[in-house]
């Protein structure tokens, strides 16, 4: 066991190996490891982001569905309301029409009655004149007397 120049040789070899390792071995391996770490982190990140996106999409879809349902319900309700309104309007109109018909019918009836009354009156007056002619048995001035008879008929 002699201590000799070997010690220096060993030190030099050591220095060279460390230098080589530091220069050519460590950096690429370390860089590859860092990069993979980054990649994995990014992968995990994007996975969680996708998960979040999915959740958001699901939420949105259900929201849209709910809105659509609401809208359809609203439309249905409106339609129902409108139908009811139309029915009401039709009823009202029918009622009005009926009333108007009744009114006109009543008016016609009154008119008819009046006409009948007038006719009756004129017949009665002519009857009265005929009666009076027969009674008096002489012809009277029809013109002069018709005025009188008319007056009478009007008083009837």
């Amino acid at each position: 066991m002699n201590m000799n120049l070997t010690i220096l040789g060993q030190s030099i070899a050591f220095a060279l190996f460390v230098w080589f390792c530091m220069k050519f071995v460590w950096p690429p391996i370390s860089a590859a490891m860092r990069e993979r770490q980054k990649k994995i982190a990014e992968g995990l990140d994007s996975a969680s982001r996708a998960q979040r996106d999915l959740e958001l999409a699901q939420q949105k879809a259900s929201e849209t569905l709910r809105e659509a349902k609401e809208q359809s319900a609203q439309i249905l309700e409106q339609a129902n309301k409108r139908a009811n309104l139309m029915i009401e309007e039709a009823k009202e109109k029918a009622r009005e029409d009926g009333e108007r018909l009744i009114e006109s019918a009543k008016a016609e009836i009154t008119q008819e009655i009046n006409r009948a009354k007038d006719e009756l009156r004129s017949q009665i007056s002519s009857l009265i004149v005929q009666g009076a002619e027969q009674i008096l048995e002489r012809s009277v001035d029809e013109k002069a007397h018709s005025e009188l008879v008319d007056k009478l008929a009007k008083q009837l």
Binding site: M3, Q10, A13
Partner: peptide, 8 residues
């Protein structure tokens, strides 16, 4: 060899 270890 102590030379080697002392070299290190």
């Amino acid at each position: 060899d102590p030379n080697a270890t002392f070299g290190l």
